[in-house]
Design a protein around this nucleic acid. Structure first.
Lengths: 151, 151
DNA sequence: GTCGATGCAAAGGCTTTGCACAGCC
DNA sequence: GGCTGTGCAAAGCCTTTGCATCGAC
């Protein structure tokens, strides 16, 4: 049961900013809702997946839409160590949402850990910062690549 | 007391790989040793700082050298959420080396926290991964920018 | 003297932007 | 109907690469 499409939320969020609900914006957001939280896509991947659909969305619009949805807080931008910029569905859980990435093959696992969020909060407090988000990137080798390294 | 320049280490590391010790490579590494551990620079910044010096190092060589020194384990590449790729002096401490970044002005603070490393180790273990490095990026607003936001 | 390294400039990705047309409100 | 959004193509970063020359060993 993935989060149902929420045109109402999207529409009102856009309306509050004096912006419009377009099929392209709905399609991009729907794509992320379809793949679920914690799965991330690059701009190019979003473009490719939407090419398969009935109507296409230009790559420029994909970039513009990803930026818009991120600024609205509906998507979350993330920077994986080895790849490029990627985006995923935002959720409260993102304040404490971490990535275990294989630096060799790119396999990525997601995990949560309250202690990490606590550490981030402590650091922010110590320096007088207001915490927005806490992302732990664990660079590692997956079991398959560990085996391959020892070939 | 910053780490003293180590031409011997650099020379032998290079020699082991059939590569040569050049003034450019020494200068790039010396720059990172001069600014100290935990401070990071972009390729462009390295280039700028070396322009001030007596002899210049081309930007292409800066990129080549940063890649080389990273692959040798002398430098550490890192991906800050808002900026681009940056590099800093590698050290064992890097397995547990975290960043508090102001998303508005870019101010960056470094901190360590053993609990974070422990969380990374646990996650890696749970998934059968071999941990290489653990970097926590805390996106936040610095005191000055918090004040500015509330203007 | 040999073979790797450098500098320069051009080529390559990825992302953004300008502009005319399309379409949401 | 007005004004924002889209598509297309061109422009802009940042980074890498090709090639002739330089220089470490």
């Amino acid at each position: 049961m993935s989060t149902p499409s929420q045109p109402t939320t999207l529409r009102s969020s856009l309306h509050d900013r004096g912006q419009r609900l377009t099929p392209q914006r709905q399609r991009v957001l729907a794509l992320f809702e379809r793949i679920g939280e914690g799965r991330h896509l690059s701009a190019e991947e979003v473009h490719q997946r939407l090419l398969g659909a009935a109507a296409r969305v230009s790559l420029a619009t994909v970039y513009r839409t990803l930026r818009l949805l991120s600024s609205m807080g509906l998507l979350q931008e993330l920077e994986l160590p080895e790849g490029g910029r990627r985006f995923e569905l935002a959720s409260d859980a993102h304040r404490d949402h971490h990535h275990l990435v294989c630096v060799r093959c790119g396999q990525t696992e997601e995990f949560e850990n309250a202690a990490v969020l606590a550490a981030g909060e402590t650091a922010a407090l110590d320096h007088g910062f207001r915490l927005l988000e806490c992302v732990l990137n664990v660079r590692a080798l997956c079991p398959r690549c560990v085996a391959a390294e020892c070939r």
